[in-house]
Design a protein around this nucleic acid. Sequence first.
DNA 1: CGGACAATTGATCTACCTCAAAATTGGTGG
DNA 2: CCACCAATTTTGAGGTAGATCAATTGTCCG
Lengths: 237, 237
Amino acid sequence: MTMLLRKLESIATLSDGEREAVQSLPVRNRTFGAGQDIVRDGDQPSHCCVVIDGWLFRYKILGEGRRQIFSFHIPGDTPDLQSLHLPVMDHSLGTLTQASVAFIPHESVRDLTLRFPRIGAVLWRDTLIDAAIFREWMAGMGRKSAYGRIGHLFCEMYAKLEAVGLAGDYRCPLPITQGELGDALGLSNVHINRVLQEMRGKGLITLRNNTLVVHAWAELCRSAEFDPTYLHLQKAG
Amino acid sequence: MTMLLRKLESIATLSDGEREAVQSLPVRNRTFGAGQDIVRDGDQPSHCCVVIDGWLFRYKILGEGRRQIFSFHIPGDTPDLQSLHLPVMDHSLGTLTQASVAFIPHESVRDLTLRFPRIGAVLWRDTLIDAAIFREWMAGMGRKSAYGRIGHLFCEMYAKLEAVGLAGDYRCPLPITQGELGDALGLSNVHINRVLQEMRGKGLITLRNNTLVVHAWAELCRSAEFDPTYLHLQKAG
DNA sequence: CGGACAATTGATCTACCTCAAAATTGGTGG
DNA sequence: CCACCAATTTTGAGGTAGATCAATTGTCCG
């Protein structure tokens, strides 16, 4: 459970007892290939999960092949905490890349939050940040241009990766296809492609081999109206 | 605190002790005119709030007069629980109509959740449903037509109002202007107007005097792809 | 009765979509 | 190491849902 611990400690400072309790959680690890579902819309999961390695994403299928992607998840994330309190899934969780995922029984997590309310608060807080990110995406889809939305997603993913030590130097992994970007941002893959070329043309970014390099961070943030406040990256009081 | 109690009991059955603890919360009531801010982007609130009467909404201002509305709130809602764990606001909360709002100090709510973890779980659950609604709006803004989005919002508001006894008979209050609908759904007020006329023309709905009447519920749900699962209206186990 | 706000209408424009094909890329087995 | 397959990216050519701008009309109150 090192990954979960690292995530929790990035959010709040834990006592020895808390740390030990987290480490003694009964965890079962599983690996998945790319493009597999971990939990499906309508399921009633009995476990929460923590991303150990690889990327996951949450999505929902609408009719006629339409798909909306809600979030991308990186190592340390707990993309499925909601099933702790909402028994039936209203969306799906799948892998973007090959991934290693740790599963913890709901019962153990509930017990943990009862014995250590501060850990409960940290997990609750995590789901609130999740919601804050949803709001930010909503603002993008409702009121920003394709250019602004794409730039914003790049800023967000870089900031999140950097915060857990998986990126730096304005360079980060980004194993997301243009089609997936479109389904996340409410755009077509064709239009994503054209806007990416425009951003490349301006020398703002490079995106190749699943790697994003931002050549002009300040300019990217400005044009995407990116303000990281909503990520609430600072530690909790 | 009758309103909060009613809301909590609509979600889970409370014990006598829990009920009493909720009722003895130190509450301060305030009334607001229409169009006033209750909490602003950047604030660090010290209280949570519960809607007693009237409608609220959450929103964020982007540049150049653009605004994104994230949610509408009706009596019984707790639109500001996130400030309990995220000290600085990343959006604003304002009134849509004249409204009466109850404020409870964060400290008291935290204390309540410590003494009665089940209440904490219910509140946490409430914020998770909030996030589920955000996801549903995202899916609408990303992948649905204006027609589908508007219809979906009508279904959602009716379902939420009906669940707390504020609507029935396919008729409900809806004190939302066409401009506000547009800012919620990522559309212009002009287009909202035209789509509403189309829905009226088909005999689907009536919307006048801040009152919505749905004449063909099943057809509206179908055309909006509305499935209430995401509202998680059933009581918690 | 007047003033402000909300709804409606008309005309024009454009950001982004759809469809379809071609070019690239990356992974795989031989 | 190469050839090949499938998935992705890229390009081109229309098409359209919804935006913008600017009146006009309607409605609600004080």
